[in-house]
Every structure is written in structure tokens, then in C-alpha cells.
Computed example of a mutant assay.
Amino acid sequence: MSPTVLQRLSGILVSYFGVEEHEVTPDATFASLDLDSLAIVEFAMVAEKEFGVVLGEDEVSPRARIGDAVAVLTAKGAAGND
């Protein structure tokens, strides 16, 4: 079974930003995960490479929830790995 977009985002947050896996939930915000504006820009770049889609500056912010990011990525065609 392939990982979901949420699982892949969780992997990015855990491996690149030191977030604890249990903290990554759809309702968590990037701010609650201690990602500042610079870290969010870096996150967007890593996610763009991972999923092959472009994230606009207005699509990921400190107040955005992880579930919002999953929805944006999914709407842009991101999917779990096959």
C-alpha cells in the first residue's frame, strides 16, 4: 500500500524539520509545529520537489493547517507514491 499525501508530508516535516511524528495531524498548524516563515519557505521547496507541484506563497503560511496543505497538494495532482 502506498503512503498517502499526509504520510509523505509527515515524513518531510519529521526528517527535514525535526517535528515529532505524533505532532503531525491534519489540524496542526505550521506555527504549532514551530515552523517560522523561513522554515515554511524551505518546506514549500522540499514539498514541491517531493510532489512535483508548485506551491504559491499564499498557499502555505504559519496559520495554515497540515490538512490545508494536503488539500492544496491533492488539488494540484499530488498523490501517494505508487
Rank of each mutant, 00 (worst) to 15 (best):
D27W: 00
G77W: 01
Y16E: 15
N81K: 13
E57N: 13
V5I: 15
G67D: 10
V53D: 01
L38G: 04
L13W: 06
G52C: 05
R65Y: 00
V60L: 14
V72P: 09
R65N: 01
T74Q: 14
A78W: 01
D34M: 00
H22S: 10
A47F: 14
Q7W: 05
V54S: 12
L73E: 09
A39V: 05
V53L: 07
D27M: 00
A78V: 04
P62I: 05
I66R: 02
L35I: 07
V5D: 10
R65K: 12
V41G: 06
G18S: 05
E48I: 09
V60P: 08
A39P: 02
A44T: 14
L13Y: 06
G80M: 08
V19W: 01
Y16W: 04
G11V: 03
I66D: 02
D27F: 00
G67I: 12
D34I: 00
D34T: 00
D27K: 03
F17W: 07
L55G: 03
E50I: 04
S61N: 09
S61G: 06
Q7H: 09
A71M: 08
V24T: 12
V70P: 12
D36I: 02
L35W: 05
M1N: 09
K76E: 02
T25F: 07
G11C: 04
I40M: 10
T74Y: 01
E57K: 10
G67H: 12
P3M: 10
D58W: 07
S32A: 06
E50L: 07
L13P: 06
F17K: 11
P26Y: 08
F43S: 10
G77V: 05
F17G: 11
A44W: 11
E20M: 06
P3Q: 11
A71V: 04
F51I: 07
V53S: 02
V72I: 15
A69N: 09
G56T: 03
G77H: 05
D36K: 04
N81E: 14
N81P: 06
L33A: 00
Y16N: 14
L73I: 15
S10E: 13
